[in-house]
């Protein structure tokens, strides 16, 4: 799977309240509506600025805080193609895979705002086309790769009716 998009940079410890504020998430299950508010407290115009497939690029501990699955879902419904971070908080990481959002753990320190990126999940490489530089990806555990390749845990269960990793 090849993903192409432009980098939107964020810092360390981007928590799930920043990704989608509690004041919105309790009100509705309409993810398209929630998506309009994604990252709003950090950048009120983020939703309008991004194009389909663009990428969130962050530092360490991305997605820390609450267990809200609305966080990866709001990112997906906003049209973001994937999230790259030097590390992820555990619950967000699971939720992202479960909902089918590719999360890429790699060294993001040399990526700048607006860089054009291409992610090759099979090869485990991010190509920074603007800087002509390759960045290796920390491989996903097999179980997560299986869930992601099934299209998320819902589709995995639709297919197998249970956990099936053999």
């Amino acid at each position: 799977m090849l993903l192409n998009g432009k980098a939107f940079k964020f810092g360390n410890d981007i928590n799930t309240d920043y990704i989608i504020s509690g004041k919105y998430k309790f009100k509705t299950l309409d993810m398209k509506e929630l998506a309009r508010h994604v990252m709003e407290d950090l950048d009120p115009h983020f939703y309008e600025k991004i194009s389909e497939g663009d990428m969130i690029v962050a530092g360490s501990n991305f997605g820390c805080g609450s267990s809200r699955e609305q966080a990866p879902l709001a990112i997906i419904y906003a049209g973001v193609g994937c999230v790259l971070a030097s590390s992820f908080a555990r619950i967000f990481y699971r939720n992202a895979i479960n909902t089918g959002l590719p999360v890429i753990e790699c060294d993001t320190s040399k990526i700048e705002e607006g860089d054009l990126l291409q992610v090759n999940l099979e090869k485990g490489i991010v190509l920074n086309k603007s800087k002509n530089r390759e960045i290796p990806i920390t491989p996903l555990p097999q179980v997560m790769l299986k869930i992601l390749s099934d299209g998320g845990l819902i589709k995995h269960f639709q297919k197998y009716g249970d956990f099936k990793f053999d």
Binding site: S67, N95, N98, G152, L153, F157, F163
Partner: peptide, 20 residues
């Protein structure tokens, strides 16, 4: 431990979950 909604759904269907 805390999980998201889809892990929760898988848990209440199967009574199990995968863990590292």
């Amino acid at each position: 431990t805390g999980v998201g909604s889809t892990d929760l759904a898988a848990g209440i269907i199967s009574g199990k979950l995968w863990f590292k």
